[in-house]
Structures are given as structure tokens and as C-alpha cells.
């Protein structure tokens, strides 16, 4: 499988804090790569560094041969990178429709794609004309993911979509993500929920203390409780 995104020895400083301390990560084309790790391991910072929201202070950062480091966030987005942030980044004062409209960069939404999204997330159709601030947490998460799906993207970064959601909604989300995977979109997803990671991940990378400490296939990690315990601690494994 061809690699799409490659990080080599990426360091990121936020103020006086040295968060990423040499991240090496490869995201293969057409796969969903799971980024796991404890709180504070640097997962969100990795996504933000890829998006250009934090500046890498050292290392290589390339998307299909394009060096991302000198680019600003809007230019990285224009390369076809979709971003679903941890706080979902939904514009509360804008309607659901306006949120989607912004995500379609040329100002028009593809009808068939929209129908596909509506079939995955019926709630969005239902509340189409209402302010997104009125949506529930799960619906906001769906809107945020739908924004990334409204146009074909080369890469979608998704930060902990299951955070704070009820198990039933997580199931719904897993279904939708499977549907998205069928389009062979490349995805890099941060998760803490091992059940979700296990259900969706093709590849996996585990972070600790600002580095990637393990990279491999998700199925292998899922089948190896000892490795899970070593990498993620018992508490995470016990979630299953």
C-alpha cells in the first residue's frame, strides 16, 4: 500500500513545553490508521501539527511528497485534508446547512454526496435549517464528520469522535465510519475507546511521551492482550 502521509522525527513546542519529541508515523493510502495512547501522549498535538495549527520545530512532514511544514493551515486544507477537531469545531450560530456549505469549498454541495450523508446521518437532514448550537453532542459530532465528508478528501484527521458519547451513539458512529471507509478515504483517527479502535482500525500507532512507541496492524494488537496491557495500560484494555 502506498504511503500518503509521512512524519519523520517531528518535534513540536507549545510555548515552553516540548510536546512532540520526534514522532515517526506513516499513514498508508486508503486505510484507517488509529492513533492510540494515554492522555497527554501528544495525539491531538500530532493532528494539529499536521494541520499546521501548531508549527513543527523540527522533522519532516509530507503529504504524498508535498512538504507540509512551510504551509499555513488553509493551504494544507486545500490539499484535500479534512479535519474533525476534538471539540468538533461546529459553528453554533450557523445553521446545519451553513456549516455544510462552508465545508464545500466551491460553495456548492454535491447532491448525491449529500444524499449519501443524509442516509448515514438522518438527524442532519431533520435539523437542516436550525442553528447547529441546538444539536446534541452526538449530532454535533456527526455534523463535524459530515463536513469532512461533503467533498472527496485525500486525508481526513479525526480527533476522538467517541469522546463523551453514549455507547449507543458510538455504535452508530462506527457504522457511519465503516460506510466512509468503503470509499477508500485515508483516515487518521485519534481514539481512546479501544472498542471503536478495534472495530475500525486497519493500522495502528501508539503514542507515549510525545513519540510513537509502537506501529503495526490493528488486528495484531487486538489479538495480543499482553501487548495491549504493555502499551496502553490495563485500564484501557478493560474497556472492552
Amino acid at each position: 500500500m502506498a504511503e500518503l502521509l509521512r512524519l519523520e522525527g517531528v518535534h513540536t513546542h507549545i510555548g515552553q513545553y516540548h510536546i512532540l519529541q520526534g514522532v515517526d508515523l506513516v499513514v498508508p493510502e486508503g486505510e484507517l490508521t488509529m492513533l492510540l495512547g494515554r492522555n497527554g501522549a501528544g495525539k491531538t498535538t500530532t493532528l494539529r501539527t499536521i494541520m499546521g495549527m501548531w508549527r513543527a520545530s523540527a522533522g519532516e512532514l509530507g503529504l504524498a511528497g508535498t512538504d507540509l511544514r512551510p504551509l499555513a493551515t488553509p493551504d494544507i486544507a486545500r490539499l484535500g485534508v479534512g479535519y474533525v477537531p476534538e471539540n468538533m469545531g461546529v459553528f453554533a450560530a450557523l445553521t446545519v446547512r451553513e456549516n455544510m456549505l462552508l465545508a464545500a469549498r466551491d460553495g456548492a454541495m454535491d447532491e448525491s454526496r449529500l444524499e449519501w450523508i443524509f442516509s448515514l446521518f438522518p438527524a442532519l437532514k431533520k435539523f437542516w435549517g436550525l442553528p447547529a448550537g441546538n444539536l446534541s453532542g452526538g449530532q454535533k459530532q456527526m455534523l463535524s464528520i459530515a463536513r469532512a465528508m461533503i467533498e472527496p478528501r485525500r486525508l481526513i484527521l479525526i480527533d476522538e469522535p467517541s469522546k463523551g458519547l453514549a455507547p449507543a451513539i458510538v455504535d452508530a458512529l462506527i457504522e457511519a465510519m465503516r460506510e466512509l471507509k468503503r470509499t477508500a478515504t485515508t483516515i487518521l483517527m485519534v481514539e481512546q475507546n479501544f472498542r471503536m479502535a478495534q472495530a475500525l482500525g486497519d493500522g495502528v500507532a501508539v503514542m507515549d511521551d510525545g513519540r510513537v512507541v509502537h506501529a503495526g496492524r490493528m488486528a495484531e494488537l487486538a489479538a495480543d492482550p499482553a501487548l495491549q496491557a504493555r502499551l496502553l495500560g490495563l485500564s484501557l484494555g478493560a474497556h472492552q
Binding site: M51, M53, A72, T73, P74, A77, R78, Y83, P85, G89, F91, A92, A93, L94, E98, L102, A103, R105, R147
Partner: peptide, 14 residues
């Protein structure tokens, strides 16, 4: 309007 609410996300949308 979107920028007033969350400029960073507007940038992330390109």
C-alpha cells in the same frame, strides 16, 4: 460569521 465564532476552524476548512 463563522470566523467570528471560530477562526481556527474556518482556516481548517481551507
Amino acid at each position: 460569521r463563522a470566523g467570528v465564532e471560530n477562526g481556527e476552524m474556518v482556516e481548517a476548512l481551507g
